[in-house]
């Protein structure tokens, strides 16, 4: 008796749910833009979050309808792309360089759907695909310049998350900037082999401060929380990354190497609304385009004369007079 009842109950529940599911279809007329985050999730205090902020601004100012899907594993990218495709979006973003391969494939499979990828480079982008790249080395160079000018110990540090090309752009851009400002300055560099282990970041930063560095720059995600914490405790300086991280330690984070993913997202969305979607291209954002830079809070700690110099350096980079290295080989060449 009971079993029959249970089964009946479950069946009814399932049917109700299915029916409820069918009554949801609605037609939207607004332009819809959506994004797939990488495994960091939408609130990673880093580029995913910045991307979402860009879309939120687009929602406010351009009146587009926005949404996102978070990925938990690399294998999620493709199904998530499909989810957004089925939801009928006008433009679908993939956030992060890991998304490039997936984007290339889905763009080919769905020629009528527009796509764009942050930190993605496409060799032969189809007309419905845009790759967006940032010159992370340029803001890293600028914060390196600041560090080189402000260090009293003539020793600064760099903590990297994992040892691969995206982080190398920060690493060698920073080193070049430091050397440009202060050729005698020594640079300690260490990788944490993690983007999550804050305790390890703190231990590495502590060690750098002990070894005489007085400013440490990090490009290490969650590991960086530990780096900034170490600066806070020992009253030393740290430099943040991706967004303005001054709020994590207002007295210690002197500047941040910012990557304005939000600006890039907003600009392209605006282009889409205007009907000027630059399909089939790779767009590179650097200082010139105002999509990277140093944090607006830099003036709290950095003296005005150094900031003025930074502006000059910035002009030189924009004019192409100064080309910032983005890898070890470039850096070696650059040093000569």
């Amino acid at each position: 008796m009971l079993r029959k009842r249970t089964i009946l109950f479950i069946s009814v529940l399932v049917i109700v749910l299915v029916i409820a599911g069918c009554g949801q279809a609605k037609k939207e007329t607004k332009i819809k833009v959506a994004m797939v985050t990488d495994v960091g999730g939408v609130n990673d205090q880093s580029f995913n979050q910045s991307a979402w902020e860009g879309l939120q601004r687009a929602e406010k100012e351009l009146g587009v309808k926005i949404s996102y899907v978070e990925s938990n594993q690399d294998a999620d990218y493709k199904p998530n792309m499909e989810t957004l495709f089925d939801a009928g979006n006008d433009l679908i973003w993939g956030i992060g360089f890991k998304m490039a391969e997936t984007l290339g494939e889905v763009a080919k499979l769905n020629p009528e759907q527009k796509y764009a990828g942050i930190d993605c480079f496409f060799e032969n982008p189809t007309p419905n695909l845009v790759g967006i790249l940032f010159k992370e080395q340029e803001p890293s160079f600028l914060v390196g310049y600041i560090a080189g000018k402000m260090t009293k110990a003539k020793k600064v540090g760099f903590v990297g998350g994992m040892d691969f090309f995206v982080i190398h752009k920060f690493h060698y851009g920073f080193m070049a900037g430091v050397k440009y400002a202060n050729p005698e300055c020594k640079i300690l560099a260490q990788y944490a082999d993690s983007f999550t282990d804050a305790a390890k970041g703190k231990a590495i930063a502590n060690q750098m401060y002990k070894n005489g560095a007085d400013i440490v720059f990090h490009a290490a995600g969650g590991v960086g929380d530990g780096v900034i914490e170490a600066a806070k405790e020992q009253n030393k300086f740290a430099i943040g990354v991706d967004r303005d991280q001054n709020d994590l330690a207002p007295a210690n984070v002197i500047t941040s190497a910012m990557k304005r993913v939000d600006n890039a997202m907003f600009n392209l969305t605006e282009d889409l609304v205007k009907g000027e979607y630059p399909g089939g291209t790779n767009v590179v954002y650097g200082l010139k385009e105002g999509a990277v830079g140093i944090a607006p809070t830099s003036d709290k700690h950095v003296p005005q004369d150094i900031l003025d110099e930074v502006d000059k350096v910035k002009e030189m980079i924009i004019s192409g007079e100064l080309v910032v290295p983005s890898s070890l080989e470039d850096y070696k060449k650059w040093m000569k």
């Binding site: 109700v16 299915v18 409820a20 599911g21 949801q24 089925d86």
Partner: peptide
């Protein structure tokens, strides 16, 4: 109810979803 309906139709709604 709406959340579960979305999940159910998102899993069974099309052959593609079942495949995923």
């Amino acid at each position: 109810l709406r959340a579960y309906a979305i999940i159910i139709s998102g899993v069974l709604g099309r052959f593609k979803y079942i495949s995923y």
